[in-house]
Nucleic acid binder design. Structure first.
Length: 254
DNA sequence: ATGGTAGACGATCTA
C-alpha cells in the first residue's frame, strides 16, 4: 500500500500535473495540502476519473487539505479535534483500506517571533494532544503533511543561512520532537540517513537548479505502521516540470 | 533590511 503526501500549491492551477502523476504512479492514498479552494470548487470529476475517492476540507484562497484513496474512505474528521476553534482548514483524517490516515498543513509561521509564529506553535501543541490520544487506539496510522519544519540540520541544504530562521528554529523543532517522542516515526528517516533528500525548493532565487532545498514534508507513522513499513522516498521529478508545485511528493509503502 | 516567484483574487495576503 503506497501512501503519498504532497503540497500541491493550488489543485486547480496544478490539475494536469497532478492527474498525470496519479495515472503514472497509481498510489493507494494521496494526502494533499494547499488545495486553495472551497469544497464546491474542487475538481472532483478529474480526480475521480483517475480512480480515486475524495475527502476534502477546503476554504477560500488559502490552505485546504484532502485525502484521495483508491479504497472507500470512512470516519472522516475535519479539523484537529483538540483545536476546534481553529478557523483554518489545515487537517483532515479518515480511515481507508484498514489504515487511519491524516493530511496536515502546519502553518508556515512567517517569521520567528511574529503572531503567525505563535499560532504555529499553538497548532503544533494541539496536534500533539490529538496524536497522543489517537496513539492509544493501537492502529496503523500515517500522518502525512507539510509540517513547515525541517527536523534537523540534515534536512537543510544551507544550514548557516537557515540558522534559527523560520522552518528551522529550535522551538519549532522541539514541537515536532515532542510528537515523535510520543512514539511516532519519521518514515523517510528509516531508510535515508545523512544529508537530504529535500522535499521543498523555494520558487525564489533559483533554489531548484541549485538543489537548495529543505525537507519539510513528512509522513509520521504509528508503531504499528512502522512495523509494516517497506520503503520510502521523495519523487523529485514533478518539481522539475513546467508549472510545478514548489513541493515534491513524499511517499512510503506499507 | 530587502528581494526574489507563485497563486488566489481583484487590493493585497500568504507562502
Amino acid at each position: 500500500m503506497k501512501i503519498v503526501t504532497w503540497n500541491v500549491n493550488s489543485i486547480r492551477a496544478r490539475l494536469e500535473n497532478i492527474t498525470d502523476w496519479l495515472r503514472a504512479n497509481q498510489p493507494d492514498v494521496v494526502l494533499l495540502q494547499e488545495t486553495k479552494c472551497q469544497d464546491h470548487d474542487f475538481p472532483l470529476e478529474a480526480i475521480e476519473d483517475c480512480g480515486y475517492n475524495v475527502a476534502q476540507h477546503g476554504q477560500k484562497s488559502y490552505n485546504g487539505v484532502a485525502i484521495l484513496s483508491k479504497h472507500p474512505i470512512d470516519d472522516i474528521i475535519k479539523g484537529i479535534p483538540t483545536f476546534a476553534e481553529d478557523e483554518q482548514a489545515r487537517y483532515i483524517e479518515a480511515v481507508t483500506n484498514g489504515v487511519r490516515v491524516a493530511s496536515v498543513y502546519v502553518p508556515n509561521g512567517s517569521d520567528v517571533g511574529t503572531e503567525k509564529y505563535d499560532y504555529k506553535l499553538i497548532f503544533m501543541a494541539r496536534l500533539k494532544e490529538h496524536l497522543a490520544a489517537t496513539l492509544l487506539y493501537d492502529e496503523l496510522f500515517a500522518i502525512g503533511g507539510d509540517y513547515n519544519i525541517a527536523p534537523t540540520d540534515d534536512d537543510v541544504h544551507d544550514v548557516k543561512g537557515w540558522h534559527e530562521q523560520i522552518l528551522c528554529s529550535t522551538p519549532e523543532r522541539k514541537s515536532l520532537r515532542a510528537i515523535l517522542n510520543l512514539g511516532y516515526s519519521d518514515a523517510m528517516r528509516i531508510h535515508h540517513k545523512g544529508k537530504g533528500p529535500y522535499s521543498w525548493w523555494d520558487y525564489r532565487s533559483g533554489a531548484w537548479p541549485k538543489d537548495d532545498g529543505l525537507r519539510i514534508d513528512l509522513i509520521l507513522l504509528s508503531p504499528q505502521a512502522v512495523d509494516r513499513l517497506a520503503g520510502s522516498g521523495v519523487d523529485r521529478d514533478p518539481r522539475g516540470l513546467e508549472k510545478a508545485s514548489d513541493h515534491a511528493p513524499v511517499w512510503c509503502t506499507l
